[in-house]
């Protein structure tokens, strides 16, 4: 099989995202975890780019890597969570349940991919180029998906008001 440039890129980005995801949960220092999560977001954005979804890729970086992770970093620095002794957890029933559940999900995914014979939608590049543009996403958001869009914005508004109320309480 001749590997095209795109295939090589895909395997590289996929490997990078998996490796960085593993690093996120194995690092002791929370700051390092945050940094590897950012690397993970970047490799995901790269994967979106290989699918011609420019807008989603950039939004992924602006919103997740640029805004949310900065807040994570901010909180970690403010709380100074550098001390790994305090963070260390002994093996508890919570961990056991988590391990069991993730193993079950892994098995499920492997089954779907390898044995069940599910047909996966093949990548349709001509259509993908059209779908990935800002114009298309904007039009869809304000026509087909208008209701979910409005609901989400009300939800966010409620969250903002909630944050303001909680912040006000402390001062009084």
């Amino acid at each position: 099989m001749i590997m095209t440039f795109e295939t090589v890129l895909f395997y590289f980005l996929a490997a990078a995202s998996i490796a960085s995801a593993v690093m996120v949960i194995t690092r002791r220092s929370p700051v390092m975890s945050v940094l590897f999560l950012i690397v993970n977001f970047f490799s995901l954005a790269g994967l979106y780019l290989t699918l011609h979804a420019q807008f989603i890729a950039v939004i992924q970086i602006i919103v997740y890597a640029g805004a949310i992770m900065v807040l994570f970093l901010f909180v970690i620095m403010l709380l100074n969570l550098g001390d790994e002794q305090r963070l260390a957890e002994r093996i508890s029933y919570k961990k056991m349940i988590a391990v069991g559940l993730s193993f079950a999900v892994l098995m499920e995914v492997l089954y779907v991919v390898a044995y069940s014979g599910t047909e996966f939608p093949t990548k349709n590049l001509e259509r993908a180029v059209e779908i990935g543009t800002v114009e298309y996403i904007g039009r869809e958001l304000f026509t087909t998906f208008l209701f979910p869009f409005e609901i989400t914005s009300i939800l966010l508004l409620a969250a903002i008001i909630g944050a303001v109320v909680m912040a006000k309480k402390k001062i009084d």
């Binding site: 950012i38 420019q54 807008f55 970086i61 602006i62 890597a65 805004a67 900065v70 970093l73 800002v134």
Partner: peptide
């Protein structure tokens, strides 16, 4: 690129890491 402005915004939002990490 089609999304030139968004590219600029994405990079400006990355710039904060240099300073924050330097401080920490």
């Amino acid at each position: 690129v089609n999304i030139g402005i968004l590219y600029i915004l994405a990079l400006t939002s990355m710039g904060v890491y240099g300073i924050t990490l330097a401080g920490w």
